[in-house]
Write a protein that binds this DNA or RNA. Sequence first.
RNA 1: GGCCCCAUCGUCUAACGGUUAGGACACGGGCUUUUCAAGCCUGUAAUCCGGGUUCGAUUCCCGGUGGGGUCACCA
Length: 491
Amino acid sequence: MSMVKTRFAPSPTGYLHIGGLRTALYNYLFAKKHGGIFALRIEDTDRNRYVPGAVESLLHVLEAMGLQHDEGPILTKEGLIEQKGSLGPYIQSERLSLYTKYAHELLERGLAYECFCSSERLESVRSQQGIAKLPTKYDRHCVTLSPEERTIKHTAGEPCVIRLKIPDGETTFDDLIRGRITIHNQEIDDQVLIKSDGFPTYHLANVIDDHLMEVTHVIRAEEWISSTPKHVLLYQAFEWDIPQFAHLPLILNPDRSKLSKRQGDVAVEDYLRKGYLPEALINFVALLGFNPKADQELYRLEELAELFDIEKVNKSGAVFMTDKLDWMNGQYIRTKTPEEITKLSQPFLKKAEIKAPEEILIKICTVEKERLVLLSDLVEKTRGYLILPTYQANLLVWKKSTKEDARLQLQNIIPVLEGFNNEITGSSALIEMALREYIEEKYLQNGNVLWPLRVALSGLSASPAPFELLWVLGKEESLRRIHKAITMLEE
RNA sequence: GGCCCCAUCGUCUAACGGUUAGGACACGGGCUUUUCAAGCCUGUAAUCCGGGUUCGAUUCCCGGUGGGGUCACCA
């Protein structure tokens, strides 16, 4: 039994789809679980879809997500692409001669044939089949071409493709998730292997590379099930060992169709940009398809790798809803220190052009941490500490109190705060102790004092406790805000 | 339409013949509380339908229904 090897083989589109993330993750987990190799291969055989910089950005997200591959293209410190591993190159556009070599081998052995049909002819064949309600497939017009006819067409410069000649019979493969799947070869089209521009199609390149790169387990999305028989036929034509297949259930839009751009954000980059943490995204997406334990929701990547079991992956698709992701993100934010959150929030604050001393930012994170769902939530929160939000005077009045009392309480608290020494103002716990003591001594009500104070300090109907606000804002700014509130209440 | 795949609370899932069908998110109520958040307690909520097999089916089989995928010189 050779070593387990999986691969994530995306086409470089410029972003990583949520479904792609999960495919990459499951490949990674399966390889790690079995002490095997996780490879990355770039499937860029469609020159019409070429996106500059796409490989680099893919490498960046994968790294941000913590999914390190053992083989494949990697980014150097200088931002250049290098290859890691001995079975490369791992970028298909750099392997073109390989594909034509194998395609010609099939040609010589009579397992494939050249086809000169124009796309116009193919379209009209298909549309006629459509009208006749027949399955749409190539009519094998070129399969009987004689060598002489082919030579004539070649010398005339007619473009041509190479097609696989699908044999009679039926094709069966075993899927680790779904079991045995059989289909009649009549259902399979004579698949193009080499396009007229000389590039291979996915089917050919994928099979050749998986074999040459010694991939043992092909883990990919369910949308590939119907083309898997073609791949099996190719392996058989080359007389190669067939890898194990595992087709993952689809990730769905709320209407249960395949997750698509039209119905919301699908790029991992979008979610990162919104302020989701990589570990939350990984955790969430891992659970879209299986759950290692019945009563646990939070898993680290290493833990998932230990517990992963491909046979326990669900068969049915999973709707992508962000409610639970939001909750998870909050959970992960809470596991971080204020210093870590401060650091992670830098890009968001920078983008919003918010500047503040690190010391203040750390205090803000300390106090707001439990209230965060997204890292980006920190933007508005931080702004509130730097600039007092505008608010209505009657917000200062507690529901069980009056405007006059609110003003009185604020006025009375000023000397108390002024009396705080540096030791007290340096700790929200000490501030709380001192203020509660004050309230108790004067026989006051918490609400009468703390509500107007909190609103004066935050300008908000909902915020952290006044003690914490005081600690973050400092004595001077706090007093300034209280004076402002008193002025508002006097009007 | 042909072929293929799938089917447990609104959503993500657990239960691989015997459970009061479990957990989580969301939602409702409560506790705590100056507000919000967090936390704790608690409530509502599901086996698509019909046949079999079996002493017994969420679970196995068949059929239906429903949903999805795929039918390119895209991956």
